[in-house]
């Protein structure tokens, strides 16, 4: 059997397994899972983690584990909302300023690691604290003067509703797929992540590639911020690295997608994983598993299970 056929077979098995899980789950919840309305809800919930995960993919693949992404989302979403609402900049403010903020914040974080030679997860945590502090400062002032700690996006919320979200999702997927698999930047990022020494020897400008990857990643993160701000109306500030919880589902999505990387490429895997993770929460809610405890426990168990399945026949230590 050729390599292509073997891969196709694996992909079919993966699709079959996901399909089977959906059918069984649907039976378990008396047919409430696979309804048009519920699938719409699942897709709606999968869009935010998908965009965050695509962003992470471009940043993490080159070896930068940036944990300030959650804080970046919160801060840039609030900046966008302020520009849109308070400064009257409308959609231009919401989209433009959120994206610009996301890129600037991500560049600060990544540059801190690349130029100061600090491990990326350390600089990421440091920057997360700084971003959180900036938003907290703003929240504190706003809570005194505006009667609410964070700005609410009252208008300009179409990007957080169907069908616009789905359209943006499809465009986002196409962009992520093409850039990651079919662009020089994407291939160079993957080369750096795969073998830094070879990438360097082949004349790839490491720093430029990593920073460019972070720009692309930040654009996806910025889109995630816009979508979530539009969907939820407001994103509250946090402190003490509470922003990490914003990206927990996305981290789980990336982890799952990485587990299936041998079967499907990352951008596709992220779609599957995001839908899978959000479906999991949906099914657990339909079953009646308590949120906050039982659901998170199940997610943890499923993530571990997927890790085990994806490396079922791999002997050795999985890093």
């Amino acid at each position: 059997m050729g390599v292509k056929m073997r891969k196709l077979k694996k992909q079919m098995i993966l699709l079959g397994c996901i399909g089977a899980i959906f059918v069984i789950s649907n039976m378990a919840v008396d047919g409430r899972l696979l309804t048009w309305n519920n699938m719409k809800i699942i897709i709606t919930h999968a869009i935010f983690p998908s965009f965050v995960s695509w962003g992470m993919m471009f940043i993490f693949t080159s070896g930068l584990i940036d944990l300030s992404i959650g804080a970046n989302i919160l801060l840039s979403a609030n900046i966008g909302a302020i520009c849109a609402m308070d400064l009257g900049m409308g959609y231009f403010g919401l989209i433009g300023m959120t994206l610009i903020s996301a890129v600037i914040l991500e560049q600060l974080s990544v540059n801190c690691s690349v130029n100061l030679k600090i491990p990326s997860w350390i600089s990421g945590l440091g920057m997360a604290l700084i971003f959180e502090a900036i938003l907290t400062f703003y929240s504190t002032i706003r809570s005194k003067t505006e009667g609410s700690s964070n700005i609410t996006l009252v208008n300009y919320r179409e990007m957080g509703s169907m069908p616009y979200m789905a359209i943006i999702w499809i465009i986002g997927f196409a962009a992520a797929y093409i850039i990651f698999n079919r662009s020089t930047l994407g291939l160079n990022i993957r080369a750096i992540g795969g073998n830094e020494g070879v990438a360097k020897a082949m004349g790839i400008n490491m720093k430029k590639t990593m920073l460019s990857g972070a720009v692309v990643g930040a654009l996806f993160i910025g889109m995630a911020a816009i979508i979530q701000e539009s969907y939820a109306g407001k994103l509250a500030s946090t402190s003490g690295l509470g922003s990490l919880s914003t990206i927990f589902k996305s981290l789980a999505t990336v982890l799952l997608a990485q587990s299936f990387e041998r079967v499907v490429s990352m951008p596709v895997g992220i779609i599957f994983s995001a839908v899978f993770v959000t479906s999991l929460f949906n099914v657990l809610t339909l079953i009646g598993v308590p949120s906050g405890t039982g659901q998170e426990m199940c997610l943890g168990a499923i993530v571990i299970l997927c890790g085990i399945i994806s490396h079922w026949r791999y002997k050795g230590v999985v890093k």
């Binding site: 020089t184 291939l187 080369a191 795969g194 073998n195 070879v198 990438a199 020897a201 790839i204």
Partner: peptide
């Protein structure tokens, strides 16, 4: 030196010149 295992062979062959 080796190759980048996570990329297809053709890309490895033309890495840096894509």
């Amino acid at each position: 030196l080796g190759v980048v295992g996570s990329l297809p062979p053709a890309i490895n062959m033309f890495l840096g010149r894509t």
